Amino acid sequence: MKKVITFGEIMMRLNPEGYLRLLQAQKLEMSFAGGEANVAVSVANFGMKAAFVTKLPDNVLGRRAAMELQKYGVDTEAIVYGGERMGIYFVEKGASQRPSKVLYDRGASAIALAERPDFDWEHILEGANWFHFTGITPALSEGCAEICEDALRVCKEKHITVSCDLNFRKKLWSKEKAGEVMGRLMKYVDVCIANEADAADVFGICAGNSDISKGELDRQGYVSVAQQLVERFGIKSVAITLRKSISASINHWGGLLYTGGEAFFSPEYMIQIVDRVGGGDSFAGALIYALNSGYEPQKAVNFAAAASCLKHTMEYDFNLSTLEEVNSLMQGNASGRVQR
């Protein structure tokens, strides 16, 4: 049986209704999300067993976050309870030329203060064949970086496939620190996932003539990025999301999967964005599902791009598109006509 374990932080998300700014808001909508939690929901939503591991405060908010994951079929048995608080982030959705903004309040969260004895990885990883984490988790604290490495060592012993989304967050650590820690962890990684800036920020590997601020992407430059990551760290496969931001409301979206010395590009989609937060995580979750299901490289990247395209049309972070919807889009049914 295929089973995916993800490890990281889940937070409470608060956002104004619609496109109101925080300065205008009279009330805030509550949801829960985090990079690895978003991936677990995607995997479970497609019908594969998924579990999420973290540490949450033993209070009503911690239990509520776990209930949200359980609602979508994610196993939460390995969540540890303790600590004082869970992280919070505020989202202000952008439109047209006004970008979306995210404000974090995650200091001293339960997972950031977690300790290595909190997690029995031998037990947690029993029966799993895939483990996923992001560069956000080891950035939370020295302790989280050590906990990640503990998990990765057990994965190597058990021959569990490891994927990592680089997900550099400048508000959590410096590029130098990220390069040092992630460079140490990458020796355990089989599948590396990144966006147009992560490889440059973390490892100084740039994509040729691309200019992400102008929405200009050099496809061959990204192939070079993938090749360099493979050569430097011995990674088996590299996936890169390709986003052309026309505005906060309109993006062109696709993906690249580099594996076996060959590059596979997905079709490119033009998206009228409803909510782009969690878009990269939906690509990662769909790619993990596809590769863990034995999809060939071209089909896998096509599936990941189509699934994450659909996520951009949904409120909040979780991707709740179905296999039927993703397969329909992959087959070219992109008109958005009403289905009856």
Rank of each mutant, 00 (worst) to 15 (best):
K3I: 11
T6M: 08
E9V: 08
E9F: 06
M12E: 15
N15I: 00
P16L: 07
P16A: 07
E17T: 09
G18T: 05
Q24I: 09
Q26Y: 05
Q26L: 08
S31E: 12
F32Q: 03
G35S: 15
E36A: 10
E36M: 06
E36F: 05
V39H: 03
V39L: 07
V39S: 03
A40V: 00
A40Q: 00
V43W: 02
G47M: 12
M48N: 08
A50V: 06
T54C: 09
K55R: 13
D58Y: 00
N59R: 08
A66M: 12
M67W: 09
E68K: 12
T76A: 04
I79C: 08
R85Y: 12
R85N: 11
G87L: 05
G87D: 04
I88S: 01
Y89N: 06
E92A: 12
E92S: 14
Q97F: 14
P99C: 05
L103F: 15
A110M: 09
A114L: 03
R116M: 15
F119C: 03
E122A: 10
L125H: 15
E126V: 09
G127Y: 13
N129R: 09
W130P: 05
H132E: 07
F133K: 01
S141L: 14
S141F: 09
E142L: 12
G143C: 05
A145R: 12
E149L: 10
D150S: 13
R153F: 15
R153A: 14
V154I: 11
V154E: 13
I160G: 04
V162Y: 07
D165F: 09
L166H: 04
R169T: 10
L172K: 10
W173I: 06
W173L: 07
S174C: 10
E180L: 11
V181Q: 01
R184E: 12
L185M: 09
Y188Q: 09
V189R: 00
V189E: 01
V189M: 03
D190I: 04
N195M: 07
E196V: 09
A197R: 15
A197H: 14
V202L: 13
F203W: 11
F203K: 10
C206M: 14
S213D: 11
G215M: 04
E216N: 13
L217A: 07
D218K: 12
D218G: 10
R219F: 15
Q220H: 11
Y222G: 10
Y222W: 15
Y222E: 11
V223Q: 08
V223M: 03
L229E: 08
E231P: 02
E231W: 02
T241N: 03
L242E: 14
I246E: 12
A248L: 11
G254V: 10
L256C: 04
L256I: 05
L257A: 01
Y258C: 01
E262V: 13
A263W: 01
A263C: 04
F264S: 03
S266P: 04
E268Q: 15
Y269P: 06
D275C: 06
V277K: 00
G279I: 02
G280N: 02
S282Q: 04
A284C: 14
A284N: 05
I288R: 04
L291I: 15
S293F: 05
S293H: 06
P297E: 08
F303G: 12
A304Y: 08
A307E: 03
M314C: 05
F318P: 00
N319F: 03
N327R: 15
Q331I: 03
V338W: 15
Q339R: 13
R340A: 15
